[in-house]
Amino acid sequence: MVRRADTDAPSAQLRAELEAAVTRTTESAHQPLLMHLNADTSWLLQIPYPTGVKHREGRQYFNILIDPWLAGPQSDVASWFSQQWHSTESKYKSIKEVEELALEMEQRAFLMSSSTSSSSRRQRRSPPSNILCKTRIDAVVISHEFSDHCHKDTLLEVDSSVPVFATEKAARLVKSYNHFDTVREVPNFSGGKWHWPAVLDPLPKWLSIWKVYSQTDALYYHTAILISFKADTLKDGHSRPSHVTRGIVYTPHGVEHENVSVIADALPRIETLALLHGLHDVSIANRGQLNLGAHNGLKVQRALCPRYWVGTHDEVKTGAGLVSFFLRRKALTVQDALKQEQEEKESNLKSSDGASYLEDFEGVHFEQLGNGDSIVLEAG
């Protein structure tokens, strides 16, 4: 489903979704919110605090800013080599606007959840405001060192007290800015048996950030970020929520599907709530694969069985420099990829591996969120 951005912030579409989600759930079972800050791959992920965990400012969401590039050009190596601009102006053009978005969603969630609370509880709670905190961004996640993911000018707008969690090369680059108090390299997720708390200071004990990659990928280009967190769930016959572990898998260039088995096979189980993976197949003159595209996305989807698959990093940007002459892009939809797989299977161009292509996609909510669009990630 494609969602159109509205003219106000946040969009009327998200307000309606949030209101509907609150009516379907109890106050203790809020769902994560995902906001597309531009047409490319900058996101704000709001994860609700689990029941029993209190924030000193009375907030309901832990806010994670992912790969922020909001305005201006991005360039790698030098402008003559590679430079790009957003083809569409970002819906949220500054960190200040992102802060305002986070506050508005806190206030809206407070008002709607308060309407389902008892009057005595409402009297003890105050609506969130900016008075009590310097920033509402709790963490920044950087997946790659390239400046369309690690954009210096945008990052320098973020309050210096916000911790940054980045892959190895990106962490070194961010440290060189001498701006942030805390920069942590994201650890590898090796799967197998693991346990809470999976502490990565200064994250809360109920949330962690990992990377998943192939050791044969020397540039770590096809890497995934796993954001795992404890979430509330109501079991049959119980009025109080218990906790399950859910995950958001973010892979803007795509990750080889074999490598995500560490997530699928992890114990205790990690339920993949959402997969962020692009549809466009992007390469450099057929010599180097950049974005793995829709066909790889289908393989990752089958391996992880997420409830949502959200497209990312598919903006066709305005480019200049040497690299722009060699970029090759194949734009596919999920339906295109499924149809091609089915045709190949039927014509015996691909040996059958037992996968039922169309059936495997049933129950998955694919979302191609536009510039400024948002979604409530309901576990169902």
Rank of each mutant, 00 (worst) to 15 (best):
E362D: 05
Q340T: 13
L322T: 08
S324D: 07
K350L: 13
E346G: 03
R328A: 09
G370Q: 15
S324M: 12
F366M: 05
G354R: 05
G372P: 00
L358N: 14
S352I: 04
K317N: 15
G311P: 09
L349Y: 09
G363H: 00
V316G: 09
S356W: 08
L327C: 00
A331N: 11
A320L: 06
G321F: 02
N371A: 12
K330L: 11
T333S: 08
T333Q: 00
K350M: 14
S352A: 08
L358E: 08
S352Y: 08
R329H: 03
S324P: 10
K350E: 10
G321S: 10
S356Y: 04
L332T: 02
H313G: 09
A331D: 14
S324Q: 08
L338V: 03
S352F: 00
E359M: 07
K350Y: 10
F325M: 13
F326K: 02
E341N: 02
V323D: 02
D336K: 01
E343L: 08
E346A: 14
V334Y: 01
T312L: 12
E315W: 09
Q368W: 07
D314P: 06
R329T: 04
L349N: 07
Q340S: 13
G321P: 03
L349I: 06
G363F: 01
G370V: 02
G370A: 11
Q342D: 11
L327I: 02
G354Q: 04
L332V: 00
S351M: 06
G354S: 05
K339T: 14
L327S: 02
L349T: 10
E362G: 01
E359Q: 14
V323S: 01
E343Q: 11
S356P: 05
Y357K: 02
Q342W: 15
H365Y: 02
N348P: 03
G354A: 05
F366L: 06
Q342P: 00
Q335L: 13
S352K: 03
G354E: 00
E341I: 04
R329M: 04
F366P: 07
G311Y: 15
F366Y: 13
S351K: 08
F361C: 11
D353V: 11
E341K: 12
E367H: 14
N371V: 11
H365N: 05
E359A: 15
S347D: 02
L369H: 04
N371R: 14
V316W: 14
G372A: 11
E359Y: 12
E343M: 06
G363L: 03
G354H: 04
F325D: 10
V323K: 02
G311Q: 13
Q342F: 10
Q368V: 10
G311V: 15
E346V: 06
L369Q: 07
S347Q: 09
E359F: 12
V323I: 15
V323E: 03
E359R: 14
R328M: 13
E359I: 00
Q342G: 03
L369V: 11
V334F: 00
G321R: 12
E346F: 05
G321H: 10
G311R: 12
L369A: 11
G319W: 06
L322Q: 07
T333E: 03
Y357T: 12
L338Q: 02
E344K: 04
K345C: 06
L322F: 14
A355Y: 06
H365A: 01
L327A: 00
G370M: 07
D314Q: 11
N348E: 12
